[in-house]
């Protein structure tokens, strides 16, 4: 029997389709689902899932956060469902999957295409990731500064508008009540 671990990195609506597809590809398999705590109830409703493993962290799946329970577990296949076509934006889950002992790893995309995933492929992605991170870190203060300045601009504008509006309101009120400012 094939032992399969599915990392719940997508919505349950997509997972419904993924599990149906995997049942066809691995008819004799035993499925386990790894999910954050808020998904455990939903994962438990699958009749063909024999085990739900709770990811005991609030944050996303990370290479540095492997649950104790998975440290010594062995699987034949690890599946990473992604909610797009290419898997872009899921590098953290791919890297996390590499920490789990398994013979094979697959990505299953939104079209339900099953694609193998290897440590070699991950190496290239990590190299690119490093470059993007360096550039993004360098540019973040500049872009954040622009956002902050715009925020201050809006604040000042709204404050001055409020002031003008307040003065106008005061004048109008004064006119009606006969008071002079």
């Amino acid at each position: 029997m094939t032992n399969i671990l599915i990392i719940r990195s997508c919505s349950f609506q997509h997972l419904d389709r993924v599990i149906e597809r995997l049942k066809g590809d691995f008819p004799e398999a035993k499925f386990a689902v790894l999910t954050h705590v808020h998904g455990k109830e939903m994962a438990a409703t699958y009749t063909n899932v024999s085990r739900v493993i709770v990811y005991p962290y609030v944050k996303s799946f990370s290479f540095t956060r492997l649950p104790q329970e998975l440290r010594y577990a062995d699987f034949d296949v690890v599946i990473v469902p992604v909610s797009n076509v290419s898997g872009a934006g899921f590098l953290n889950v791919f890297l996390f999957s590499l920490r789990i002992r398994s013979i094979k790893r697959y990505i299953i995309n939104i079209r339900l295409e099953l694609k193998p995933f290897s440590a070699t492929k991950a190496t290239g992605m990590v190299a690119a990731d490093l470059v993007y991170k360096i550039v993004a870190v360098a540019l973040t203060p500049i872009m954040s500064g622009v956002v902050l300045l715009t925020w201050i601009g809006y604040k000042l504008t709204s404050m001055s508008i409020d002031k003008v509006a307040g003065r106008l309101a005061g004048k109008i009120t004064g006119k009606f009540t006969g008071r002079k400012r």
Binding site: V37, K40, E41, A44, V49, S50, R51, V52, I53, V54, Y55, P56, Y57, V58, P67, Q68, E69
Partner: peptide
């Protein structure tokens, strides 16, 4: 983690309950 059958869900309950 108390609402799901213990036989199905595996995680240290104490750890999960802290979330």
């Amino acid at each position: 983690a108390d609402n799901v059958p213990a036989s199905l869900v595996s995680a240290p309950r104490q750890e999960v309950n802290q979330l």
